[in-house]
C-alpha cells in the first residue's frame, strides 16, 4: 500500500483556489436541476461515529435507528439496536450538520467508538458492514483508521458499498498520514476548506490534486455537542457531513444515480469549476 503518500492533499487556505475548467459534456448540469427543492426525503444516512443525541435540537429526532457493534465474550461481533447516547459529542455534531442540510433524511446512528481501543478496527468495520446490509443510501465516516492491518477488510467493504450504489462520504485525516477508507478512490473524500466558509451551506470545492477530492465548510463551524449545547469546531470531521447532506439532497431528487455519477455531478457543481458561458 502507498505508505508514503500524504493523506492530506488539500490546503485549508483559500489563497490558491484552483479554478477548474468544466468539460462541455457537463455544462448542462446545474444546482437547481441537481438538488433544488430537495429536502433529502426518502434517503437513509448512516453516521458511523460516537453515537448521536437524538434529543439535541440540532438533530430534532431525525435518528430513526441505532446500532452498536461490539465484540462478545465468544469473540463474535454482536449488534445492539437499542437507542444509545453520544459518548463525545462528535457524532451529534455530524448528525446536526447533515440534518441542517437535508432535514427530511432519515439518520441512523452506528456507534463504533466506545471507551476502549481494543478491537476498534474490527468494530469499525462491523459498523460499516451493518450500514451496507441495512440498505443505507449514504454513509458518513468522519473517522478512519491508519492501521495497515485493516486495509484489505475496508477495501472490500467500500467496494461492496460502491457496487450496491451506496455513497460513502469520508473525512480525510487532518494529519499527514495514510488513512482509510478516505484514501480509496470510490469514496467522496472531504476536507475542510476556508473558501467554503461562506453563508451558503451548500458551497463546496473540487480539489484537482487527490486523494482528497472535495473541500467543504468545516472551519470555525458551530456544531451540536453534548447536553443540547453547541461548540465552535474546526476539522475535516465537520466538512464531511456537509457533503453527506448535499449527496442526500441529490439522491433524494435523483434516486437512481450511482456513486460514480454522484461524484461526477458534484465535481461539475463545485464552486471552483468554471462552467463557462
Amino acid at each position: 500500500m502507498p505508505r508514503q503518500r500524504p493523506a492530506w492533499s488539500w490546503s485549508s487556505s483559500s489563497i490558491e483556489t484552483p479554478i477548474m475548467p468544466s468539460s462541455g459534456l457537463f455544462r448542462s448540469i446545474n444546482r437547481q436541476d441537481a438538488f433544488g427543492g430537495s429536502s433529502g426525503s426518502g434517503i437513509k444516512i448512516a453516521v458511523i461515529d460516537s453515537g448521536i443525541d437524538n434529543d439535541h435540537p440540532a438533530v430534532a429526532g431525525a435518528v430513526r435507528g441505532w446500532s452498536e457493534p461490539s465484540i462478545k465474550a465468544d469473540g463474535e461481533i454482536g449488534f445492539i439496536e437499542e437507542p444509545h447516547s453520544d459518548l463525545s459529542g462528535h457524532g451529534t455534531a455530524c448528525a446536526g450538520i447533515i440534518h441542517s442540510i437535508a432535514p427530511d433524511a432519515e439518520i441512523y446512528s452506528v456507534r463504533v467508538l466506545g471507551q476502549r481501543l481494543s478491537g476498534k478496527g474490527r468494530v469499525f468495520a462491523s459498523g460499516l458492514r451493518w450500514a451496507i446490509d441495512n440498505h443505507m443510501n449514504v454513509i458518513n465516516l468522519s473517522l478512519g483508521t491508519s492501521n495497515a492491518e485493516h486495509f484489505s477488510r475496508f477495501h472490500e467493504l467500500v467496494d461492496e458499498a460502491y457496487y450496491r450504489r451506496i455513497v460513502l462520504v469520508t473525512a480525510a485525516n487532518n494529519m499527514p498520514v495514510v488513512s482509510f477508507p478516505s484514501l480509496y478512490s470510490t469514496v467522496i473524500s472531504t476536507a475542510c476548506y476556508e473558501g467554503a466558509n461562506g453563508p451558503d451551506p451548500l458551497d463546496f470545492y473540487y480539489n484537482p490534486k487527490p486523494p482528497v477530492e472535495f473541500g467543504a465548510n468545516g472551519i470555525d463551524k458551530e456544531v451540536a455537542w453534548l447536553d443540547g449545547r453547541y461548540v465552535t469546531a474546526t476539522g475535516n470531521s465537520f466538512a464531511a457531513p456537509s457533503m453527506t447532506g448535499v449527496v442526500a439532497l441529490l439522491l433524494s431528487k435523483h434516486p437512481t444515480l450511482t456513486p460514480f455519477q454522484v461524484k461526477s455531478i458534484l465535481s461539475s457543481l463545485a464552486n471552483n469549476v468554471d462552467v463557462g458561458a
Partner: peptide, 11 residues
C-alpha cells in the same frame, strides 16, 4: 486517540 482525527474547538 480513538479516531486519529485532529480537532480544534472554540468556546
Amino acid at each position: 486517540a480513538a479516531t486519529g482525527q485532529a480537532i480544534s474547538i472554540t468556546d
